[in-house]
Protein backbone atom coordinates (compact mmCIF):
# COMPACT_ATOMS: atom_id res chain seq x y z
CA UNK A 1 0.00 0.00 0.00
CA UNK A 2 1.33 3.42 -0.93
CA UNK A 3 -1.05 5.31 1.31
CA UNK A 4 -2.14 7.77 -1.39
CA UNK A 5 -4.52 9.42 1.08
CA UNK A 6 -1.58 11.06 2.81
CA UNK A 7 0.45 14.01 1.64
CA UNK A 8 4.18 13.46 1.17
CA UNK A 9 5.68 12.77 4.64
CA UNK A 10 2.24 12.63 6.31
CA UNK A 11 1.81 16.33 7.22
CA UNK A 12 0.00 18.72 4.87
CA UNK A 13 2.03 21.40 3.12
CA UNK A 14 0.72 24.33 5.18
CA UNK A 15 1.69 22.58 8.40
CA UNK A 16 5.14 21.87 7.04
CA UNK A 17 5.55 25.51 6.08
CA UNK A 18 4.56 26.56 9.61
CA UNK A 19 7.14 24.16 11.07
CA UNK A 20 9.81 25.31 8.63
CA UNK A 21 9.21 28.93 9.63
CA UNK A 22 9.77 27.93 13.26
CA UNK A 23 12.91 26.03 12.26
CA UNK A 24 14.30 29.02 10.35
CA UNK A 25 13.72 31.25 13.36
CA UNK A 26 15.34 28.69 15.62
CA UNK A 27 18.41 28.55 13.39
CA UNK A 28 18.60 32.35 13.35
CA UNK A 29 18.58 32.47 17.17
CA UNK A 30 20.68 29.46 18.25
CA UNK A 31 19.44 27.81 21.42
CA UNK A 32 16.25 29.87 21.65
CA UNK A 33 13.04 27.87 22.09
CA UNK A 34 10.63 28.84 19.31
CA UNK A 35 6.96 28.02 19.94
CA UNK A 36 5.17 26.21 17.14
CA UNK A 37 1.70 24.80 16.59
CA UNK A 38 2.53 21.17 17.28
CA UNK A 39 0.15 18.74 15.58
CA UNK A 40 -1.42 15.57 16.80
CA UNK A 41 0.67 12.73 15.36
CA UNK A 42 -0.28 9.06 15.00
CA UNK A 43 1.85 8.10 18.00
CA UNK A 44 1.78 8.92 21.72
CA UNK A 45 3.52 11.93 23.23
CA UNK A 46 6.92 10.90 24.51
CA UNK A 47 7.58 8.68 21.50
CA UNK A 48 9.07 11.44 19.41
CA UNK A 49 6.13 13.48 18.12
CA UNK A 50 8.30 16.62 18.04
CA UNK A 51 11.16 14.94 16.20
CA UNK A 52 8.77 13.33 13.72
CA UNK A 53 7.19 16.68 12.88
CA UNK A 54 10.57 18.32 12.33
CA UNK A 55 11.69 15.40 10.17
CA UNK A 56 8.45 15.52 8.16
CA UNK A 57 8.93 19.25 7.55
CA UNK A 58 12.51 19.00 6.28
CA UNK A 59 12.37 15.70 4.39
CA UNK A 60 12.81 15.89 0.61
CA UNK A 61 12.41 13.13 -1.97
CA UNK A 62 16.18 12.56 -2.29
CA UNK A 63 16.83 12.38 1.43
CA UNK A 64 18.16 9.26 3.05
CA UNK A 65 16.73 8.76 6.52
CA UNK A 66 18.27 7.07 9.52
CA UNK A 67 16.44 6.77 12.83
CA UNK A 68 18.09 5.79 16.10
CA UNK A 69 16.72 5.22 19.57
CA UNK A 70 19.36 5.20 22.33
CA UNK A 71 21.94 4.80 19.58
CA UNK A 72 20.30 1.71 18.18
CA UNK A 73 18.79 1.35 14.70
CA UNK A 74 16.83 -1.78 15.55
CA UNK A 75 14.63 -0.87 18.50
CA UNK A 76 10.86 -0.67 18.14
CA UNK A 77 10.66 3.09 18.15
CA UNK A 78 13.44 3.51 15.59
CA UNK A 79 12.00 0.90 13.25
CA UNK A 80 8.47 2.27 13.50
CA UNK A 81 9.49 5.82 12.69
CA UNK A 82 11.72 4.64 9.82
CA UNK A 83 8.85 2.59 8.39
CA UNK A 84 6.46 5.48 8.90
CA UNK A 85 8.49 7.74 6.63
CA UNK A 86 9.33 4.95 4.17
CA UNK A 87 5.58 4.53 3.81
CA UNK A 88 4.32 8.11 3.86
CA UNK A 89 7.23 9.74 2.01
CA UNK A 90 8.74 6.85 0.12
CA UNK A 91 12.25 8.05 1.00
CA UNK A 92 15.26 5.77 1.14
CA UNK A 93 16.26 4.65 4.61
CA UNK A 94 19.56 3.48 5.94
CA UNK A 95 21.24 2.47 9.17
CA UNK A 96 24.59 3.91 8.10
CA UNK A 97 25.46 7.21 9.75
CA UNK A 98 27.70 8.29 6.90
CA UNK A 99 25.09 7.64 4.16
CA UNK A 100 22.17 9.35 5.87
CA UNK A 101 21.20 12.95 5.12
CA UNK A 102 18.63 13.21 7.90
CA UNK A 103 19.12 11.39 11.20
CA UNK A 104 16.34 11.41 13.75
CA UNK A 105 17.58 10.50 17.19
CA UNK A 106 16.39 9.82 20.67
CA UNK A 107 19.02 10.15 23.43
CA UNK A 108 22.24 9.75 21.42
CA UNK A 109 24.50 11.44 18.94
CA UNK A 110 26.15 8.91 16.57
CA UNK A 111 29.79 8.05 17.29
CA UNK A 112 30.91 8.61 13.70
CA UNK A 113 31.47 12.32 13.21
CA UNK A 114 28.76 14.05 11.22
CA UNK A 115 29.56 15.88 8.01
CA UNK A 116 28.34 19.08 6.42
CA UNK A 117 24.94 18.75 4.80
CA UNK A 118 23.59 16.31 7.34
CA UNK A 119 20.74 17.21 9.69
CA UNK A 120 20.42 15.67 13.13
CA UNK A 121 16.86 15.82 14.52
CA UNK A 122 16.48 15.29 18.27
CA UNK A 123 13.31 14.15 20.02
CA UNK A 124 12.94 16.34 23.10
CA UNK A 125 10.69 15.57 26.05
CA UNK A 126 11.36 18.72 28.14
CA UNK A 127 12.92 21.67 26.32
CA UNK A 128 13.16 23.99 29.33
CA UNK A 129 16.48 23.51 31.18
CA UNK A 130 15.24 25.59 34.13
CA UNK A 131 11.98 23.63 34.48
CA UNK A 132 12.62 21.89 37.76
CA UNK A 133 14.40 24.86 39.30
CA UNK A 134 11.88 27.57 38.55
CA UNK A 135 8.30 26.37 38.21
CA UNK A 136 6.93 29.56 36.62
CA UNK A 137 7.21 29.46 32.83
CA UNK A 138 6.71 33.25 32.64
CA UNK A 139 9.74 33.62 34.89
CA UNK A 140 11.97 31.17 32.99
CA UNK A 141 11.21 32.98 29.72
CA UNK A 142 12.19 36.24 31.34
CA UNK A 143 15.39 34.66 32.63
CA UNK A 144 16.26 33.46 29.12
CA UNK A 145 15.45 36.88 27.70
CA UNK A 146 17.72 38.64 30.19
CA UNK A 147 20.41 35.96 30.17
CA UNK A 148 20.07 35.34 33.92
CA UNK A 149 21.47 31.86 34.33
CA UNK A 150 22.75 31.87 37.92
CA UNK A 151 20.02 29.41 38.78
CA UNK A 152 21.42 26.78 36.41
CA UNK A 153 24.57 26.72 38.50
CA UNK A 154 22.46 26.20 41.61
CA UNK A 155 21.60 22.79 40.23
CA UNK A 156 25.26 21.95 39.64
CA UNK A 157 26.09 23.30 43.13
CA UNK A 158 23.47 21.00 44.64
CA UNK A 159 25.00 18.05 42.80
CA UNK A 160 28.45 18.72 44.21
CA UNK A 161 27.12 19.44 47.70
CA UNK A 162 25.25 16.16 47.72
CA UNK A 163 27.47 13.78 45.72
CA UNK A 164 30.88 15.45 45.73
CA UNK A 165 30.88 15.84 41.96
CA UNK A 166 28.51 17.01 39.23
CA UNK A 167 26.26 13.97 39.13
CA UNK A 168 24.03 15.15 36.29
CA UNK A 169 24.78 12.56 33.64
CA UNK A 170 22.22 13.33 30.94
CA UNK A 171 20.31 16.43 29.79
CA UNK A 172 23.42 18.27 30.91
CA UNK A 173 22.87 22.02 30.37
CA UNK A 174 24.89 23.76 27.67
CA UNK A 175 25.34 27.36 26.61
CA UNK A 176 24.84 27.85 22.90
CA UNK A 177 26.68 30.56 20.99
CA UNK A 178 27.58 32.24 24.32
CA UNK A 179 23.95 33.29 24.78
CA UNK A 180 21.14 30.82 25.50
CA UNK A 181 21.31 27.99 27.99
CA UNK A 182 19.78 24.93 26.40
CA UNK A 183 18.73 21.43 27.39
CA UNK A 184 20.35 19.09 24.87
CA UNK A 185 17.46 16.60 25.32
CA UNK A 186 18.29 13.56 27.43
CA UNK A 187 21.49 12.66 25.60
CA UNK A 188 24.23 11.38 27.91
CA UNK A 189 26.71 14.11 28.77
CA UNK A 190 29.30 11.95 26.98
CA UNK A 191 27.78 13.34 23.77
CA UNK A 192 27.87 17.01 24.77
CA UNK A 193 31.29 17.77 23.23
CA UNK A 194 30.05 16.41 19.87
CA UNK A 195 27.53 19.25 19.66
CA UNK A 196 30.27 21.87 19.80
CA UNK A 197 31.37 23.20 16.42
CA UNK A 198 29.51 20.36 14.70
CA UNK A 199 29.45 20.35 10.89
CA UNK A 200 25.86 19.14 10.75
CA UNK A 201 22.73 21.15 11.48
CA UNK A 202 21.09 20.11 14.77
CA UNK A 203 17.33 20.57 15.21
CA UNK A 204 15.37 19.86 18.38
CA UNK A 205 11.63 19.20 18.38
CA UNK A 206 9.43 18.95 21.48
CA UNK A 207 5.93 17.90 20.42
CA UNK A 208 4.08 17.94 23.71
CA UNK A 209 5.75 21.18 24.80
CA UNK A 210 5.34 22.74 21.33
CA UNK A 211 8.89 24.07 21.05
CA UNK A 212 11.58 23.88 18.37
CA UNK A 213 15.19 24.96 18.85
CA UNK A 214 18.36 24.57 16.85
CA UNK A 215 22.13 24.65 16.75
CA UNK A 216 23.38 25.81 13.34
CA UNK A 217 26.55 24.17 11.96
CA UNK A 218 29.84 25.27 13.50
CA UNK A 219 28.27 26.93 16.55
CA UNK A 220 29.95 26.95 19.95
CA UNK A 221 28.26 24.74 22.53
CA UNK A 222 29.78 24.85 26.01
CA UNK A 223 28.78 22.57 28.88
CA UNK A 224 28.26 24.56 32.09
CA UNK A 225 30.57 23.80 35.01
CA UNK A 226 32.57 25.29 37.88
CA UNK A 227 36.24 26.30 37.66
CA UNK A 228 37.13 23.81 40.39
CA UNK A 229 34.70 21.14 39.13
CA UNK A 230 35.16 21.14 35.36
CA UNK A 231 32.85 19.30 32.98
CA UNK A 232 33.92 15.75 32.21
CA UNK A 233 32.50 13.04 30.00
CA UNK A 234 31.48 9.78 31.50
CA UNK A 235 31.71 6.30 30.03
CA UNK A 236 31.96 2.85 31.60
CA UNK A 237 35.60 1.89 31.99
CA UNK A 238 35.60 -1.07 29.60
CA UNK A 239 36.07 -1.87 25.92
CA UNK A 240 33.03 -2.86 23.86
CA UNK A 241 32.52 -6.63 24.19
CA UNK A 242 31.68 -6.96 20.50
CA UNK A 243 34.03 -4.61 18.67
CA UNK A 244 36.63 -3.75 21.30
CA UNK A 245 36.12 0.02 20.95
CA UNK A 246 37.66 2.02 23.78
CA UNK A 247 36.15 5.37 22.97
CA UNK A 248 32.45 4.73 22.36
CA UNK A 249 29.52 5.20 24.72
CA UNK A 250 28.59 1.83 26.22
CA UNK A 251 25.33 0.15 27.19
CA UNK A 252 25.43 -2.18 30.15
CA UNK A 253 23.66 -5.46 29.40
CA UNK A 254 22.79 -7.84 32.20
CA UNK A 255 23.40 -11.36 30.91
CA UNK A 256 22.12 -13.57 33.74
CA UNK A 257 20.67 -13.31 37.23
CA UNK A 258 24.04 -13.87 38.94
CA UNK A 259 25.46 -10.40 38.32
CA UNK A 260 27.19 -11.03 35.01
CA UNK A 261 27.07 -8.18 32.58
CA UNK A 262 28.66 -7.04 29.41
CA UNK A 263 29.31 -3.66 27.89
CA UNK A 264 28.56 -3.01 24.24
CA UNK A 265 28.50 0.08 22.07
CA UNK A 266 25.18 1.88 22.29
CA UNK A 267 25.64 3.00 18.67
CA UNK A 268 24.84 -0.19 16.73
CA UNK A 269 25.92 1.16 13.35
CA UNK A 270 29.31 2.19 14.75
CA UNK A 271 29.76 -1.23 16.36
CA UNK A 272 28.75 -3.21 13.27
CA UNK A 273 30.95 -1.11 11.00
CA UNK A 274 33.92 -1.81 13.26
CA UNK A 275 33.14 -5.52 13.37
CA UNK A 276 32.95 -5.59 9.58
CA UNK A 277 36.39 -4.00 9.55
CA UNK A 278 37.65 -6.93 11.59
CA UNK A 279 37.70 -5.45 15.09
CA UNK A 280 36.87 -8.01 17.73
CA UNK A 281 35.86 -7.88 21.38
CA UNK A 282 35.77 -10.47 24.13
CA UNK A 283 32.26 -11.73 23.22
CA UNK A 284 32.52 -11.32 19.49
CA UNK A 285 30.45 -14.28 18.34
CA UNK A 286 26.92 -12.97 18.10
CA UNK A 287 24.50 -14.87 20.39
CA UNK A 288 22.25 -16.12 17.58
CA UNK A 289 25.22 -17.64 15.73
CA UNK A 290 26.16 -19.50 18.90
CA UNK A 291 22.64 -20.87 19.01
CA UNK A 292 22.99 -22.22 15.46
CA UNK A 293 26.21 -24.02 16.26
CA UNK A 294 25.22 -25.18 19.72
Amino acid sequence: MNAPAYNFAYLDEQTKRMIRRAILKAIAVPGYQVPFASREMPMPYGWGTGGVQVTAAILGRDDVLKVIDQGSDDTTNAISIRKFFAKTAGVATTTSTADATVIQTRHRIPEASLHAGQVLVYQVPIPEPLRFLEPRETETRRMHALGEYGLMHVKLYEDIARFGHIATSYAYPVKVNARYVMDPSPTPKFDNPKMDNCAALQLFGAGREKRIYAIPPYTSVVSLDFEDHPFNRYRHDAPCALCGANDSYLDEIVTDDKGSRMFVCSDTDFCETRQAQGHRGSESAAPHEEMVHG
Binding site: L151, Y157, F226, D228
Partner: peptide, 20 residues
Protein backbone atom coordinates in the same frame (compact mmCIF):
# COMPACT_ATOMS: atom_id res chain seq x y z
CA UNK B 1 17.43 23.46 47.42
CA UNK B 2 20.02 23.40 50.18
CA UNK B 3 20.77 26.35 52.44
CA UNK B 4 24.24 26.69 50.90
CA UNK B 5 22.79 26.99 47.40
CA UNK B 6 20.20 29.46 48.66
CA UNK B 7 22.96 31.73 49.91
CA UNK B 8 25.17 31.02 46.90
CA UNK B 9 22.52 31.71 44.27
CA UNK B 10 23.08 35.48 44.27
CA UNK B 11 26.83 34.94 43.93
CA UNK B 12 26.36 32.58 41.00
CA UNK B 13 23.92 35.09 39.48
CA UNK B 14 26.65 37.73 39.45
CA UNK B 15 29.10 35.37 37.82
CA UNK B 16 30.92 33.49 40.60
CA UNK B 17 32.09 30.27 39.05
CA UNK B 18 34.20 28.59 41.72
CA UNK B 19 32.41 26.03 43.85
CA UNK B 20 34.90 26.14 46.72
Amino acid sequence: VSAGANVGERLMAVGWNHYG
